[in-house]
């Protein structure tokens, strides 16, 4: 199977590795965060462990480690393995990006 890297074009899937659901957003808590410890732990726990087991279209992180070393966000159908779109992670190139653009 080939995956269309937005930078490299179509490449054999063996050049890529899969991380998982791209929808959870990493919570940021400073060491002096005013949030309660339970609240903080819950938020991070969800980020680290809670994933929907989607049968169908899903937004996923993929890494083009065997190519340009870009992190990518792919829309993929988990049932048919069809890739609907592949875009670059916000910090993949050198463009200025806002904080945690994803």
């Amino acid at each position: 199977m080939r995956i269309a890297c937005p930078f490299c074009g179509e490449r054999d899937s063996s050049e890529f590795s899969y991380l998982g659901d791209a929808s959870p957003k990493r919570p940021n808590f400073a060491v002096d965060s005013p949030n309660s410890p339970a609240e903080i732990e819950d938020a991070v726990f969800d980020y680290v462990y809670l994933r929907a087991n989607v049968a169908g279209d899903m937004r996923e992180y993929w890494y083009h480690g065997g190519g340009c070393r870009s992190w990518l966000i792919a829309e993929r159908n988990t049932v048919t393995h069809e890739f609907k779109s592949v875009t670059a992670a916000p910090g993949a190139g050198a463009a200025l990006a806002g904080q945690a653009g994803e």
């Binding site: 480690g65 992190w71 992670a89 916000p90 910090g91 990006a97 806002g98 945690a100 653009g101």
Partner: peptide
């Protein structure tokens, strides 16, 4: 070496693109 590089790239490109 491989997994750590991948992790650092994830941090750079996905978590903290502003750095």
């Amino acid at each position: 070496a491989g997994p750590v590089t991948q992790h650092l790239e994830f941090c750079r490109q996905v978590l903290w693109p502003e750095l």
